[in-house]
């Protein structure tokens, strides 16, 4: 993958961190939960936007259009130990979504294909996620996936810092105690 600059000199890259998945399918909801937790535990600069992409597909085209850098967060089935934090880069990201079967992934595959056709694919693409244990109807993450969540957040934040984004970790007393309506992830 070429490492051409993400943005013109002196300009901050336009970054989207998008969680995808279904919170009604246990570990499939990790992308959404990760974005919620990032929002809760960190402070992001103006050039970084966080989005709960849910189970949408092509509807997300206008959200990814015009971005320099797109981070997708999702459950990644790859045969590793459940809970393992994983990374897929560049051309392998669309391929990853093409090879998978689950309610939302056809949507993301179509989304990335459509963005290629309309010349709106972000300059750089990366997928972070966790190997799921269960993908069945139900609310809440498995113990294994939950235990990988903190590390997942750290690697996403490290990646953002790596491209020059100033992400600040909030102190414990600054973190909103408000939880998701489904209770603690």
């Amino acid at each position: 993958m070429s490492m051409s600059p993400l943005s013109s000199a002196g300009e901050l890259p336009n970054v989207l961190v998008m969680g995808v998945g279904s919170i009604l399918m246990t570990d499939e909801g990790i992308g959404i939960r990760a974005v919620e937790e990032l929002q809760r535990r960190y402070l992001f600069p103006d050039n970084v936007e966080l989005l709960d992409g849910g189970t949408s597909g092509i509807e997300l085209l206008s959200y990814i259009s015009g971005r320099d850098y797109l981070i997708i967060v999702d459950a990644i089935k790859s045969g590793n130990q459940p809970g393992t934090v994983l990374k897929v880069e560049g051309e392998d990201v669309p391929a990853q979504f093409r090879t998978r079967i689950s309610p939302h992934q056809l949507g993301i595959s179509d989304l990335l294909a459509a963005a290629t056709l309309t010349d709106e694919l972000p300059k750089r693409l990366v997928l972070f996620g966790i190997e799921p244990k269960n993908i069945v109807l139900g609310i809440g993450l498995s113990r294994e996936v939950k235990s990988g969540l903190d590390h997942l957040l750290e690697v996403v934040v490290e990646d953002l810092r790596g491209i020059g984004c100033k992400v600040e970790k909030l102190e414990q007393h600054e973190i909103s105690q408000k939880q998701s309506i489904w209770g603690k992830v």
Partner: peptide, 11 residues
């Protein structure tokens, strides 16, 4: 048959 090889790495 359309399976593609995707490089997934643990981080």
């Amino acid at each position: 048959n359309q399976n593609e090889i995707v490089k997934v790495k643990a981080v």
